[in-house]
Amino acid sequence: MSTQTAPTAAIAPTGHRRISRSSWGTPVALGVVFGGYAAWIANSNGSSTTRTTLIAVVGTVALALVCYVVGRVGPAVARELRSALYGIVFGCAMGYLLSLSGYSLLRASLVGLALGASMTAASFYWFYEHEA
């Protein structure tokens, strides 16, 4: 004697994607590390406590939001654009940290551009080799 169960009804999509802990955990962790390091650099260069705190909070929130958006949008775009997004975020973040540490704006921009191009190439290689 076998018992049969009725098939369950398919759940209709509601249009809202559930936000998992890992989707916001990594951007927040990156933002906190970036903001803390930016504050440490600013404090080491003699900035006031108010300016150091402002740099830490704005840097943390800005990088966390940008990383969250790139992480959510990334899987939907082509690997070339996704690797360019990763390179842009990385290059801008490193250029900003270099400008805080006392480099001239031109030198910080050029080093940020070189690091961003390197990240673009590395992430493109990673996506090209590891995607189906």
Rank of each mutant, 00 (worst) to 15 (best):
L113V: 08
N43C: 05
L97A: 03
V32S: 02
A78L: 04
E131A: 07
G59D: 01
V111P: 03
P13L: 04
S20G: 13
A132D: 11
L100H: 00
G116V: 05
W40N: 08
M94V: 15
L65S: 09
T3S: 08
G91C: 05
Y128N: 05
I11E: 13
A39R: 07
A10G: 13
V89F: 00
A132T: 13
V111A: 09
M94T: 15
P13D: 12
S47K: 07
E131P: 13
R72I: 11
I41D: 08
C67F: 08
I11T: 14
L113C: 02
C92Y: 05
S109E: 00
C92Q: 04
I19M: 13
A10F: 04
A121L: 14
V57G: 01
L54D: 10
A12L: 13
Y37K: 00
V66L: 14
A38Q: 03
S2F: 12
V57K: 02
T50H: 01
T50V: 12
E129R: 10
Y128V: 02
T26K: 13
P13N: 08
T120G: 05
R21Y: 15
Y37I: 13
P75I: 05
T60M: 11
R51D: 14
L105D: 09
V77H: 07
G116T: 07
L100R: 00
L98C: 10
L63R: 07
G46S: 02
T50P: 06
G74T: 07
P13A: 06
M1A: 10
V70L: 13
G15N: 09
N43I: 06
I55R: 00
L110T: 02
S104G: 04
T3H: 12
I88D: 01
P13V: 06
W40I: 11
T26C: 03
G116E: 05
F124E: 02
G112N: 05
W126C: 03
G59I: 04
M119P: 06
L85K: 04
A9R: 10
N43H: 15
M119N: 12
A39T: 09
F90G: 12
L98E: 05
A132E: 10
G74V: 08
